[in-house]
Write a protein that binds this DNA or RNA. Structure first.
Lengths: 237, 237
DNA sequence: CAGTGGTCTAGACCACTGG
DNA sequence: CAGTGGTCTAGACCACTGG
């Protein structure tokens, strides 16, 4: 069926076959694809080999598997390309004389269900919550709201954040081994626009940020920038 | 050794053990970790089970494997503030049945001063200009306005963009060797909001994108997304 | 109930690395 | 050469799903 490149491993050949079916539209989102046993039979390989092909594609989010049900074509994912933008954590520090901040909130709260699951905690567990507004030359440039895993950064609430920013402290205690960002345009709540000194219906840039230390989530943050602020290099168009 | 959560699969227990060694610093970057055979013996499992644990951690870039040599602790990754942004060129293609587009503009224009300098042209030189609106399931998801260097992509205007997207064509003719993005929240002009089917004061995400082929600028694009659209993975907070 | 994916075994052969 | 990871087999038992 699939034209094999010489000596391409069999599981890779099966992957290629499946990917061709997906790309050509033969198998549509939501369709059930052949079972491991069927693929093993069709390609004359053991089930473990067929399984490997399917599993790796599932790991890549091209397929979704459910025991007892089968394997299904995933909804088209927004394929992503990594783009380097400003590192917000390094941008703001107290060695910069233009910089200042204001602590709005610094407290322990009980984890709601979603946040608990993201941080690997149980619902109701204690976690740390902070809200800080960052200024450059007395203009508010960022609202930073963080939820912090107390199992990793136990002394988060006890730091003096007029000396070090929350992000700098987090990076010092638990250097991120992975960071995930998500960017969106929003009109923030009045609480945020007020703190940033904006009109109540201002368009803002929202960056959601999750950071890991090894395999544990250290912090989940929401950063709001005034719309006039831009991430990345110079303005082009 | 490892405190197993009851009924956690054995490969997962071995993963936990390894991760503990990494987190505690027992195994440092560059160290060689026990071989599959050694782990299989220590944990009294088959080699395939031990292998699965090690392989999954290698897939997560915590370990690096080389046949004949062994498995080594990876260097801590340099954290870059990478934001995952949709790769428009791959996301939008005509083999995706949910996709469609509408060409608004496809023309040659004379370069204004700023654009000429960005593209390495002289003021008044001809350049190509396109505006395309992309749809997913008949909902507008992106306004794409491009200025294209005619010295690199001379046949840009002659393509049939009902068969291939402008970005896909650009990538085919002059694969980008560098891409720069800049992200901003804006309230677009009525022309844009109208084409996207939005209220006239909608908050939108604007991505400015410049792409290079070797050292020449191929295209300068402005991408506008509805504010409800988000770049990157799932919504967190 | 038959079928599915999830886990696991105890072997095997291979290409490759270092000493 | 002995050891490593990469691939692969032909079985097995399990929890789970739908009809």
């Amino acid at each position: 069926m699939t034209q094999a490149i010489y000596s391409l491993p069999r599981y890779a050949q099966i992957k290629t076959y499946i990917k061709n079916q997906l790309e050509s539209g033969q198998w549509q989102a939501g369709d059930r694809i052949p079972s491991e046993n069927k693929l093993a039979e069709d390609f004359a390989v053991s089930r473990m080999t067929a399984r490997r092909a399917v599993q790796e594609l599932a790991d890549d989010h091209l397929l979704i598997r459910t025991a007892g049900l089968g394997t299904f074509v995933a909804e088209p994912q927004a394929v992503t390309a990594a783009v380097e933008i400003d590192d917000f954590t390094q941008q703001f520090n107290h060695s910069n004389p233009q910089y200042s901040n204001r602590i709005i909130t610094l407290e322990q709260v009980n984890a709601e269900k979603d946040m608990a699951s993201v941080l690997g905690l149980n619902e109701g567990d204690g976690l740390f919550h902070s809200v800080v507004v960052h200024y450059r030359d007395s203009a508010a440039v960022q609202w930073e709201e963080c939820f912090v895993n107390p199992g990793i950064v136990g002394a988060y609430l006890k730091q003096n954040y007029s000396k070090v920013t929350p992000q700098a402290y987090l990076n010092w205690v638990a250097p991120a081994t992975r960071v995930e960002h998500q960017v969106q345009a929003v009109m923030p709540e009045v609480e945020v626009t007020g703190a940033l000194g904006l009109a109540s219906i201002s368009s803002c840039l929202k960056v959601s940020r999750r950071s890991w230390h090894t395999d544990r989530v250290v912090s989940v943050c929401k950063l709001i920038y005034p719309g006039s602020y831009s991430l990345g290099a110079e303005l082009i168009i």
